[in-house]
Amino acid sequence: MNPVDVTATTTELDEESVLRRVRANALARGYRAAARRALVFARQYRAEEKAPGGDRERACIEQARAWRSAAHAVHITQARIAADRPGLARARRTEATTKKIAKSG
């Protein structure tokens, strides 16, 4: 179903978009966790080799960068999808609420 399909009921649309967002957040969370683990390995390799900048350490750091970039891409994609959908309309004051505010103030 298209996320902007006006023929769908709002409940179906909301449930589907919420589930999509939950999956995207879980995916991004997994990428960030993998990046943290890669950096832990990089620190261990640095300690083992007793010199910064070894091949294994650099490989782990590059992989961590790739996973962080993937997590960022997931969030950017979700932000673009959210921007394409209509947001909440701004509430307008009606004559009745204006009179009520004037009486109470």
Rank of each mutant, 00 (worst) to 15 (best):
D84I: 06
A89P: 04
T97K: 14
T98S: 09
P86N: 04
Q63E: 09
A73V: 04
R68Y: 00
R58V: 04
A66S: 07
S17R: 11
P3E: 01
H72I: 06
P86Y: 04
R56K: 12
V18M: 09
I76Q: 10
R36N: 11
K100D: 13
A47I: 14
L27G: 03
G30T: 13
R85F: 02
T7Q: 14
L13V: 06
R58A: 05
A66N: 04
Y31D: 03
N2Q: 07
V74Y: 00
I101S: 14
T98Q: 15
E57L: 00
D5N: 11
R23A: 09
S17V: 05
A59C: 03
R93L: 15
A51M: 12
R23D: 09
R46S: 10
R23F: 05
A38G: 02
G54N: 03
A82C: 07
G54M: 03
A83S: 11
K100N: 07
Y45P: 01
S104I: 15
P52L: 05
S104T: 15
T98Y: 11
R90K: 11
G53F: 07
A83I: 08
T98R: 15
T11I: 04
A28H: 01
G30V: 05
T97L: 08
M1W: 13
G105V: 13
T9C: 04
A102T: 08
R93M: 11
A102H: 11
G54K: 02
A71P: 00
D5I: 06
R43E: 10
R37A: 08
T7D: 14
Q63F: 09
